[in-house]
Design a protein around this nucleic acid. Structure first.
Lengths: 188, 188
DNA sequence: AACCGAGTATACCGTTCGGTATATTATTTG
DNA sequence: CAAATAATATACCGAACGGTATACTCGGTT
């Protein structure tokens, strides 16, 4: 493993278990088996390390959304594909997704918030587009796409959080239940 | 305002906007207009300040749960009272609830997590009891009370988070919708 | 052979961290 | 009034913080 990857790996583990602010760069480089100038050579700053960490881990989720979050006439089906994609990504990147979850409601003026706001907006934008495209077929959704996107993502994250703590299993049945529950909440 | 209250007030504002780890005690006491030994006189440590802050702000929510989270034969009605209580509390303690939300998925080995785990368990215990008591009337809920409590709280927090960020309004209609949506997700 | 740039180590910078020893001032209590 | 207790200030502690100046190694290029 290269020094760069070792640093990213150690940073993810430490940030996930104790949080970004509570971990110092000294501990990161010691865990990675390198020295401080190496970290600053690759990432410029502690914040740059955080941004790189988030960006490079998020691409997988971003790719999934690019493929699955496209409305083709059947909203229920599209939402099921999205939920399934989130579940798959969360299970394959447990540490990262837990870390991303911990940043979900992070304080607005924290460094961590600045770093996740970009990927949050990206997710919202893609999900909103799904609901906007679906408006033609579901007239009573007009103007509510922002709320729907946020609510939908909120439900997904809630269940993933439950799963990451061992409360539930991310099964196909749960995918169906969540989408069903969400749709019911919208159209009643 | 007493020095003690000034410290708690400043700490809440700073923790809420930048996070517990990113704020130093020096900044807290400067904002409060006191000196460091005063803080240590009242709270013993920075962590003690955090615990006191959480405990003293949580009592309001705890009281509400003690009054409203009691199953009397009508589960839908009970859940509506609980959601209404959460909404009321969140609106009356916006800064605190936002801070509590930011600690919801905090890293398991962070100081903040240790401090909120107590109140999290308290909420879960009370909500679980509601679902256990309701089992007699809803046979198909047996053994699922832990999941239900976590899911229910997850939905409440999701919507409060949306409201605190201006996406939705915490209306009585939303109370009804959430409970309806939750019940539908359970019994289908 | 000379050079170059990427990667890395040693040793250090000034600042801030959480926390405290000591002393002084108010405030209560006997 | 005197004694005790609570509340506060000055000044400081060692450790850790994020970050860097400098120099060295080393594989590839000219």
């Amino acid at each position: 493993m290269t020094s760069r990857d070792a640093i990213l790996e150690s940073a993810l583990t430490l940030f996930d278990s104790r949080g970004y602010d509570a971990v110092g760069v000294q501990e990161i480089v010691e865990t990675a088996g390198v020295t401080k100038p190496t970290l600053y050579h690759f990432f410029g700053s502690k914040n740059g390390l955080l941004e790189t960490l988030i960006d490079e881990n998020f691409v997988g989720l971003s790719q999934m959304l690019g493929e699955d979050a496209i409305y083709h006439g059947d909203l229920t089906l599209t939402l099921q594909k999205i939920v399934k994609g989130y579940f798959k990504f969360a299970l394959e990147n447990r540490r990262y997704y837990r870390f991303q979850l911990s940043l979900w409601f992070s304080p607005p003026e924290s460094e961590a918030f600045q770093a996740v706001s970009a990927i949050n907006e990206q997710q919202h934008a893609i999900l909103e587009k799904v609901f906007i495209d679906a408006v033609a077929n579901h007239g009573n959704m007009r103007g509510r796409h922002k709320v729907y996107a946020a609510t939908f993502l909120g439900m997904i994250n809630t269940y993933i959080g439950l799963a990451l703590n061992g409360y539930v299993e991310l099964s196909d049945q749960l995918v169906y239940q969540i989408v069903h529950q969400f749709m019911h909440g919208i159209f009643s």
